[in-house]
């Protein structure tokens, strides 16, 4: 596998796979919490260069889901709205509560500034198509497909 700049401490947070019309994301984490925060990282690192985002504001996020997979899609839908609806770019997500039906936490980042941030890929929607969350011997793995 090609080593990409988004790999920090030589630990793979996510990988992009090709999908007919759109963009597939495979996300990894040593536990569920890390899986979800890496998913947030992946989404915003695809939208822009996450290194260009500063931390100036927090947004509270609280969502529900009927299970882990539903929760993952709903989480990503929610934070995608922060950008698509409110122009907020997320740099980091800290989780305060996570079980199979709830997720609560804080999104940290700043509002989009065309002089500072460049939008690389417009993610239009996060879909339920082939969504997967799995515990593997190496940790947790999730998969989600985005409409771009």
């Amino acid at each position: 596998m090609k080593v990409k700049p988004e790999i920090l401490n030589s630990k793979l947070k996510y990988n992009i796979f090709d999908h007919t019309a759109d963009l597939g994301l495979e996300i990894y984490g040593k536990d569920e919490r890390e899986l979800f925060s890496n998913a947030a990282f992946a989404l915003f690192n695809i939208i822009t260069d996450i290194k260009s985002i500063g931390i100036r504001e927090n947004r509270h996020v609280s969502i529900e889901g009927s299970g882990r997979e539903d929760l993952l899609v709903n989480f990503l839908r929610e934070i995608l709205y922060l950008f698509n609806g409110e122009g907020f770019l997320l740099k980091d997500f800290s989780i305060s509560r996570l079980d199979s039906h709830h997720l609560t936490g804080e999104a940290k980042g700043e509002c989009f500034d065309p002089d500072k941030h460049r939008i690389n890929t417009e993610i239009k929607a996060v879909t339920y198509h082939q969504v997967m969350v799995q515990k593997t011997p190496q940790g947790w793995k999730g998969r989600v497909i985005c409409d771009v």
């Binding site: 839908r77 929607a125 339920y128 198509h129």
Partner: peptide, 30 residues
């Protein structure tokens, strides 16, 4: 534009949530 996307996204989420109440099974959540 974003308006239509949001309408689709909102209702898709609602309908996914209520999927089990319909009384038939779907081959794809989407």
């Amino acid at each position: 534009r974003g308006f239509g996307y949001q309408v689709c996204d909102d209702y898709l989420a609602k309908m996914v949530k209520n999927i089990n109440r319909l009384g038939f099974s779907l081959p794809d959540r989407q």
